[in-house]
């Protein structure tokens, strides 16, 4: 199967590119990037073709594209690829507003191409095992969830509101919200958020704390803060504590690591050795394209997570909880 990539604006592009190079039966054809120099550099580094024009990449016989642009560009690239008949794997969040998200979903449906949102955390082996345990019923009925998706401050366009749609809240709300919906079959009803720019001299918020009401009388909190200092041993975390009537499960998604102390670096480092979720994500998406089976994470899934992030922004403005229904349209 032949695959192309559109834009290397998002940091995850490199890891998806490695997956494309490593996957048997996959031919990574080439790259288009709105930043011509960046596109050229990556194409050379990865020994693939460089396309100066998007239409030239889309004219080739590639069957699918992976889009790692800024969040605001997701819509126009997805629509262009879908109209050229290519399946789309697009980085999260699906978009920065509902209109774009709807347009992406509708266009892909109309063009009969697959649209998957890149939620790699679903493919993390520890997350899959957590899902298995929850579904086994060992925890009893779920009462509450405490979650974190911390990170370091990514910089660049991630901190520009018009390109990213917001800061730490939109960036780090969607992963865990997706996991909770998928793992527990729950939907989000009402969101309260505290967020602020407290650490970095940037345009957007860098700290966020969401308190959420879910279906089945479940409540949850999620810390989305970009507050890992540069001295921290790793980039961040995904953690969940799930409280059930019959037990408690604590998940630390990236805890399969060892510690490194090296005099040249002057700080402790954590070396993760768990499963490569990005590779598993790309592999699964391409298999769905090849076998014409449903993708695991749909555009609608992406839209549901965007609803929570946008409700959080509205709550932060009002300092009141905001119902998802209210902001939906």
């Amino acid at each position: 199967m032949k695959v192309g990539m559109i834009s290397f604006a998002h940091l995850h592009a490199e890891s998806y590119a490695s997956a494309l190079k490593a996957l048997p039966g996959v031919e990574f054809v080439g790259i288009y990037d709105e930043d011509n120099n960046r596109g050229k550099e990556w194409a050379e580094k990865l020994s693939v073709m460089h396309f100066e024009k998007l239409e030239d990449l889309l004219k080739t016989d590639i069957e699918a594209v992976i889009i790692c642009s800024t969040n605001a560009d997701h819509c126009r690239y997805t629509v262009a690829a879908a109209e050229a008949g290519k399946h789309v794997l697009v980085e999260k969040p699906i978009a920065t507003n509902f209109a774009d998200a709807h347009k992406m979903i509708e266009t892909c449906k109309k063009q009969n191409v697959k649209l998957q949102i890149a939620f790699p955390v679903r493919y993390l082996p520890s997350v899959l095992e957590t899902k298995r345990i929850v579904e086994s019923g060992q925890l009893g009925r779920i009462l509450a969830i405490k979650a974190t998706n911390h990170g370091s401050m990514p910089g660049g366009w991630f901190t520009e509101k018009d390109k990213a749609g917001g800061g730490a809240v939109i960036d780090h709300t969607v992963h865990v919200v997706d996991i909770i919906r998928w793992m527990l079959g729950l939907e989000f009803k009402e969101i309260y958020a505290e967020y602020d720019r407290l650490i970095h001299n940037i345009e957007t918020e860098d700290c966020g704390l969401l308190t959420m009401e879910l279906t089945n009388n479940v409540f949850a909190t999620l810390d989305t803060s970009w507050n890992r200092p540069s001295a921290y041993p790793t980039w961040g975390d995904v953690t969940m504590t799930i409280i059930g009537t019959n037990g408690v499960l604590e998940l630390d998604g990236f805890s399969q690591k060892f510690d490194i102390y090296n005099n040249d670096v002057k700080k402790a480092q954590w070396e993760y050795f768990g499963g490569d979720m990005d590779y598993l994500l790309v592999k699964d998406f391409l298999e769905a394209c090849k076998n014409n089976t449903p993708v695991k994470v749909t555009g609608e899934d992406g839209l549901k997570t965007l609803e929570v992030a946008l409700a959080a922004y509205e709550s932060g403005k009002r300092h009141q909880p905001v119902a998802i229904e209210e902001i939906r349209n």
């Binding site: 509450a144 704390l209 409540f219 909190t221």
Partner: peptide
């Protein structure tokens, strides 16, 4: 702002999560 199991289906399993905003700006 806070949520807890009390008032839901408590049954001696009490759990609460509390969000605080300080005048200093801290969360």
């Amino acid at each position: 702002f806070a949520k807890g199991t009390r008032g839901r289906d408590y049954n001696r399993l009490e759990y609460a999560l509390v969000s605080l905003k300080f005048k200093s700006g801290a969360i």
